[in-house]
Design a protein around this nucleic acid. Structure first.
Lengths: 151, 151
DNA sequence: ACTAATAAGTTTGTAATACAAACAATATAG
DNA sequence: CTATATTGTTTGTATTACAAACTTATTAGT
């Protein structure tokens, strides 16, 4: 059992494991598809997502994304090359940079954000208002329970 | 709004979008972490997951995984090199192979499957029995609503 | 103030993942 | 029996990710 398999599956009679795993793939596929429309991978979306309310240094980015610092260099390089992001020298530390979204970056952040909003709203359109509230409550409860929560 | 960002987030007052996105990252992180313990990526886990109840050809694998056929060659190659999987010549079609799990592959499938079962059960341990049932029902309803469902 | 240890990022080398276009071999249709 | 379609691999390219070594700047210790 336990279909962590994501593919053509009968949706009846799912276990809690199957239902959460499949739901997670559904959401991730939505993110990936929207990203693809803007030539962004999920990790690039997450990068921009972080820059919505922060201007972190490279190490902080690594921590947020759960990646090695050496992975961040290239990630930011590629986003920078596309003009979505820029490095600004940290005033207090001449080694460090802060990373922040450019105007073009903000443009994409908003577009992608709206599309995510819309499409996830769409897949939950079959729920009643009360079911939507239940979903939020249950998801939050699971997230709180989880060690390290969303990380 | 809409924190498709996965990181250190306040979990109060989430929208339906945020809660589902964060939940999906939580689940995917669990899968990734368990995979890593066995030196498997999520895509390799999915490959093995498919082989639990099928012996598909390469093109069918591509369809199941939503990848180009050219991506499957390497994916199966690497799994085969590790002895988890084997190609068997299709009797009806001398061009085609069927892919199936080896004994070592089944071993991993079971171990990984049990760990996923256990750890997802764990993060839902804070739910009551009735909440667990609700979660399944709501997730299923969302999965059914979604176009192409789990794909 | 000066050296030693730390910290912030980058570089280098390696591997997995993914695609697209071109290709080989077999199968099927007309 | 030739033309076409199908199955899978190959080749070339880009992204993602890590670990170890390295550079430069910062901080501690004496």
């Amino acid at each position: 059992m336990s279909s962590y398999d994501d593919s053509f599956d009968k949706l009846d009679d799912l276990s809690i494991v199957d239902s959460l795993v499949q739901l997670s793939f559904l959401i991730q596929n939505i993110l990936a598809r929207i990203g693809a429309e803007h030539d962004l991978s999920i990790i690039q979306i997450r990068l921009l997502g972080i820059l919505r309310d922060r201007e972190p240094g490279m190490l902080q980015l690594a921590k947020h994304l759960g990646l090695d610092k050496s992975s961040i260099t290239g990630l930011v390089d590629r986003a920078q090359r596309r003009g979505l992001v820029e490095r600004t020298v940290s005033p207090a530390d001449k080694r460090g940079f802060n990373v922040r979204a450019t105007a073009a970056g903000w443009q994409i952040i908003h577009e992608v954000g709206e599309q995510i909003e819309r499409q996830i709203t769409e897949v939950t359109a079959g729920l009643t208002e009360s079911e939507r509230a239940q979903t939020i409550a249950l998801a939050s409860k699971i997230l709180i329970t989880a060690p390290g929560a969303s990380r």
